[in-house]
Amino acid sequence: MIHRKLADSRDTRGHAPLNDPEARPHRRSFSLKTQIIIAFILYAICVSMIGWLVWKQITTNHQLSENARRVHESVQQWKPPRAEDAVRDARAYNQQLFAEGRTVLGEAVNPFDAQRERQAASIASKDSQYQDLLNMDSEGMLARLRVPSVSIDIPVYHGAAQSTLLRGAGHIYGTSLPVGGKNTHAVIAAHSGVVDASFFTRLHELKPGDLFIVQTMKEELAYQVTDIVKVLPDDSSHYGIAADEDRVTLMTCTPIGINTFRLLVSGERTAMPADSLEREDDGVSMIVISILGALIVAAIVARVWIRKRKGSP
């Protein structure tokens, strides 16, 4: 009797028992559909986040470039000898720096260490002579740096405090101002791998022989990459001024996201090319390639995962 009631349970309840084999395909199919929907939702979120990051970097890079260009073009309208006097004073400062030396290199020890920022920034900010030199605008921009081969075009400001490096590149206090001339060595630092802008993220792509341009006041100076080295954050031995040299070094943290070393790309003064150096690319192509690569990988992973789920018992 009991056996008969169990056998008739399908009729009384209106559906099959939980252990009925016929019910399993239905439950598994529903579960698979749910998982596919979740996978596509996560995929859409991922695509949206990547798209936002790309949009953020493109717009910020454009703003930095336009700001640097606008300030530089504004200086070209200055009546003589305002710009010429500014360059003259900066070169006098550089020669004094070479003759007397500098025991403090401001943030040159580690401009990316927030714990040291307060002390280092106060040293640079208290030097009124330094702060008054080579001001191209009210924000303290002293140069425009262009590296056409890797689409870098950013303003350079006095000092390298954290707040400065969020606006562009920073000039390392205690090194020569970037106005060229013998017995000079300017060091310019910027972040890599940040969300807001690319800054020096592509600096590692440079190779010996590449050119970068420093525009300050009405001067336009070309430098050819000669040395590329990685050093520890506290190693400032590569920032010294060599007699008769006209050198500029670009510095950033490396590896990106780990920041255990500093990448130094150093260049010597060379003749300005006859043709105007423009960007070889706008950086968008590299970003698009990165996005497509990430999306393809995500699609492959999702497809493999779904196939495995279909084949699971």
Results as ranks from 00 to 15, higher is better:
residue 6 L to D: 00
residue 6 L to Y: 00
residue 7 A to Y: 12
residue 7 A to E: 14
residue 7 A to Q: 05
residue 8 D to S: 00
residue 12 T to V: 09
residue 16 A to I: 08
residue 17 P to D: 05
residue 19 N to H: 12
residue 21 P to H: 03
residue 24 R to Q: 14
residue 25 P to C: 11
residue 25 P to S: 03
residue 26 H to T: 05
residue 27 R to P: 03
residue 27 R to S: 05
residue 29 S to Y: 04
residue 30 F to A: 12
residue 30 F to R: 15
residue 31 S to K: 12
residue 32 L to W: 04
residue 33 K to H: 11
residue 33 K to T: 09
residue 34 T to L: 11
residue 34 T to A: 03
residue 36 I to N: 08
residue 39 A to T: 14
residue 41 I to H: 01
residue 44 A to Y: 07
residue 45 I to Y: 03
residue 46 C to R: 05
residue 46 C to M: 09
residue 48 S to M: 06
residue 52 W to F: 14
residue 52 W to K: 08
residue 52 W to S: 10
residue 52 W to L: 09
residue 52 W to Q: 12
residue 53 L to E: 07
residue 53 L to F: 13
residue 54 V to F: 03
residue 55 W to Y: 13
residue 56 K to A: 02
residue 59 T to I: 12
residue 59 T to K: 10
residue 62 H to E: 14
residue 65 S to M: 10
residue 70 R to S: 14
residue 71 V to R: 04
residue 71 V to N: 07
residue 72 H to Y: 10
residue 73 E to T: 14
residue 74 S to N: 13
residue 76 Q to G: 14
residue 78 W to A: 01
residue 79 K to P: 05
residue 79 K to M: 06
residue 80 P to D: 05
residue 82 R to C: 01
residue 82 R to H: 02
residue 83 A to G: 09
residue 84 E to V: 03
residue 90 A to K: 02
residue 90 A to N: 04
residue 92 A to C: 11
residue 97 L to N: 03
residue 100 E to W: 10
residue 101 G to A: 09
residue 104 V to E: 14
residue 104 V to F: 08
residue 105 L to P: 07
residue 108 A to R: 01
residue 108 A to D: 06
residue 111 P to S: 05
residue 112 F to W: 13
residue 114 A to L: 11
residue 116 R to K: 14
residue 118 R to F: 14
residue 118 R to D: 15
residue 120 A to D: 07
residue 123 I to Y: 06
